[in-house]
């Protein structure tokens, strides 16, 4: 069976634990071949988990020429590994960085590229290569694609598979990549880390509770409610543009696309650009004081009311029930 390369790096390690999207990628990789994790940095803290989720091999790539630069060196690492291993596919996480690495890799290897896959399955006859599913046009269509050329390069969105354990050998192989000077021309010269909210990651969460302009800038009710049901917090662009929430929390066309089990929109009108980021959620709930708000067209359940009274009351009731 061919190898399937899965890019993971130190950013996949959150509080010393391998992130859920990485485990999802390994789970998907097993459908297509033998997963090989490509770990940039020291894989030691992650080895056990990577093997538990099916990594047969772990390529340990020294990070001296990679960290502090942008995506170009990582694309070179992958291209060199593709050449050496002729994998059945390369899987990457679907963030801004993953997509750019994938784009460069596709150019370097003359390969087909699919971004933001929400499902990846082996081809029917096995030999055909993977079949991907994407959600397009603001979630109004789903599209299945296949590859005709090169090594399939696929970026996969979080929550596209349920991580399943299946022990692999986890054999570590040091890999020394040659990084060109040109790849190091773009430099990260400053970084202000955002302080962790302690809440689930927006794109990975099973429940997302968002607030919009209707919060009037006070997110307390939204956050309190989110915490009572273990949800991540999101925001509309209006809330982000007003400076109430950082851009990383924005849901929509130019923010994050989320597809949780439950999405609760509070004080959000439901503009098409916002819908683009949330309308594939399984269950949608809205609280809005305007009965005519377009968000009510897509809800499973809606409350016409003031979020500043409805949410605290709901939070209190949930807390009471939990005892």
């Amino acid at each position: 069976m061919s190898e399937v390369l899965v890019l993971v790096d130190s950013s996949s390690l959150v509080d010393g634990k391998v992130s859920k999207p990485t485990l999802e990628l390994l789970t998907i990789a097993r459908r297509l071949g033998e997963p090989s994790a490509v770990w940039i940095g020291d894989p030691a803290p992650a080895l056990e988990t990577l093997a538990a989720y099916g990594a047969e091999k772990v390529y340990a790539v020294a990070d001296t020429d990679v960290t502090g630069y942008l995506v170009a060196p990582k694309a070179e690492v992958l291209a060199q590994l593709v050449e050496r291993t002729s994998p059945a596919a390369v899987l990457l996480p679907s963030g801004g960085e993953g997509k750019e690495i994938a784009g460069r890799l596709a150019v370097k290897t003359g390969s087909g590229l699919i971004t933001d896959a929400v499902d990846v399955q082996p081809g029917e006859s096995g030999g055909e290569g993977p079949v991907t599913t994407q959600s397009v046009f603001a979630g109004s269509y789903s599209v299945q694609s296949t590859f005709t050329r090169g090594t399939p390069v696929i970026t996969v969105k979080p929550n596209s598979a349920t991580p399943e354990q299946a022990p692999g050998a986890g054999a570590v192989e040091e890999f020394t990549a040659t990084i060109s000077e040109a790849a190091k021309a773009a430099r990260v010269t400053g970084s202000e880390p955002r302080k962790a909210s302690g809440r689930p990651e927006l794109t990975e969460a099973a429940i997302v509770v968002s607030g919009g302009r209707g919060t009037g800038g006070n997110f307390e009710a939204v956050e309190g409610f989110a915490d009572s049901i273990g949800a991540a917090v999101g925001a509309s662009r209006a809330a982000v543009d007003s400076g109430w929430m950082p851009h990383a929390f924005q849901v929509g066309q130019t923010g994050k696309t989320v597809s949780p089990q439950l999405y609760v929109a509070n004080g959000i009108s439901g503009a098409i650009q916002h819908r683009a980021g949330m309308q594939t959620s399984k269950t949608i709930v809205a609280v809005n004081k305007d009965e005519e708000a377009p968000i009510f067209e897509l809800v499973d359940f809606g409350v016409v009311g003031d979020l500043h009274t409805v949410l605290p009351a709901a939070t209190e009731e949930i807390t009471r029930r939990k005892g």
């Binding site: 009510f296 359940f301 409350v303 016409v304 009351a313 709901a314 949930i318």
Partner: peptide, 17 residues
């Protein structure tokens, strides 16, 4: 379109829960 209720004196929160 699902069910939409109008909050009257706390009924909305109850229905939501």
């Amino acid at each position: 379109a699902g069910q939409v209720v109008i909050d009257v004196g706390g009924s909305g929160a109850q229905a939501l829960v």
